[in-house]
Write a protein that binds this DNA or RNA. Structure first.
Lengths: 241, 241
DNA sequence: CGACAGGTTGACCGTTATCAAAGATCGTGG
DNA sequence: CCACGATCTTTGATAACGGTCAACCTGTCG
């Protein structure tokens, strides 16, 4: 199964993807690694693989063997789950620099979620045992990953608490407010996903999203514009919904 | 209020708690540390503090400065959040060997949740900078914490997906089924919390918990007994609810 | 230009929150 | 050890919230 291919730049690729160019670009843009010395980085790059996926391709699926960390280099990846009763929930969308697959690296050996390329996507792969060795040798990477995990856990628990205590309209309003946060001072942003996906993410239906956004617009709190653009007219009002 | 008590085994305690006995007992029962050499363990114990809390005492609260890892030695701790609209959600209950406060260790310096002693409780404290040094020096601890984080994240995302996609009755049924898992083969268990807390945990109300449990009982799937005991009569049926 | 996924709107109904009040249980102090 | 109060739990009546189904609209892309 190993497919070592020694070059002077030390790039080796396999799986069902295609070889891509420099892996330095891939690895170095990742917050987890970009504090390392050039020499250490080099070492990690040697072990990383690079794979491409076409739009709609499944990168991994629940129940599947999990033994690698996936680092997004280019494109977008939809991470979703199927609940016990078979309904889908969108967990998050990965963009370049994000990573996934880490759960299974430390935990069980099977994925609990699905990863699907939303467009032409390139990822870097680092396999479990390589990664664990790096973690032992460069403890600062662990600290970075721990930080990332903390953020994710924080985010996830906040989301859970919202589901547990807020009604749909409030969850939508909070989501819009957070979209605005990520923009700098602007009062307008483009929804980072389709309304269908947003419904899945917020645990509701497209119909309800549609209706509630219309309600918020009627209340004069937001304004919907073409191409998924939304302008926030009254942020405070939105937060009191 | 300080109650330092120096011993040959190097125990120091303060905060608003009281000195307790051996800290070896405290630290060694924690999965994160129990793989270490005696010598390393000793070193960690030196830096740990021990604090006791009475029933109902708040151990930390949202917005409060966060700079320590809390390891439960004895008792029970309720971790809960207040949502944007002020409603409470029970996040988890800690029992001896569990730890908390880790989010803030790597992330921001303020807590986002509340920790409340549910009974007479003892915890060990390790402060942020000490812990970070240990992590750098004993990378295996990071791996243990990463594993723990993975589990928590997994758990939290699963819970979020359930909130997003399952109705209350199903969430209750799944919760009961998981309680049974933790028992060995037995068909019966005691609810690990009050129904009020369960309602908060599952994002519903005590009234609904009461009614749905009665429904499940009417359907012949479970049997409620005194002292929070529940017998599962038909596990498969429960999972198809 | 046409097809198809995504989005909107309306009517309806199931689920669950809410309010109220009575009943059970638990912990505490006398 | 018992009694009391506080808190938790149950039950009922009611209504709001949001899901579902169906039909129609719209913009996006081959």
């Amino acid at each position: 199964m190993k497919n070592l291919e020694e070059k002077k730049t030390n790039t080796h690729c396999h799986a069902h993807g295609h070889a891509i160019g420099s892996q330095k670009a891939c690895v170095s843009l990742v917050p987890i690694f970009n504090h390392l010395e050039a020499e250490q980085m080099e070492e990690i790059m040697v072990t990383a693989q690079s794979v491409s996926y076409k739009k709609g391709e499944i990168i991994y699926h629940a129940g599947g063997q999990s033994d690698s960390l996936y680092i997004v280099n280019k494109g977008k990846i939809r991470i979703y789950r199927l609940s016990e009763s078979g309904k889908e929930q969108l967990v998050r969308i990965l963009t370049p620099g994000d990573f996934t697959g880490e759960l299974a690296l430390f935990k069980e050996a099977v994925h609990e979620s699905y990863a699907e390329a939303m467009e032409e996507t390139k990822v870097c792969l680092i396999n479990r045992s390589d990664l664990q060795q790096f973690l032992m040798r460069f403890p600062s990477i662990s600290l970075k990953i721990l930080t990332e995990f903390s953020n994710r856990l924080e985010q996830s628990e906040k989301q859970t608490a919202r589901f547990a205590t807020e009604k749909v309209e409030t969850r939508i309003a909070l989501f819009l407010a957070e979209c605005l946060d990520s923009e700098n001072d602007a009062k307008e942003f483009v929804l980072p996903m389709s309304k269908k996906d947003l419904a899945s993410y917020l645990g509701t239906t497209p119909e309800t999203i549609s209706r509630k956004l219309a309600d918020l617009e009627d209340q004069g709190l937001i304004k919907q514009k073409p191409r998924k653009r939304i302008e926030i007219l009254d942020l405070d009002g939105l937060l009191f919904v």
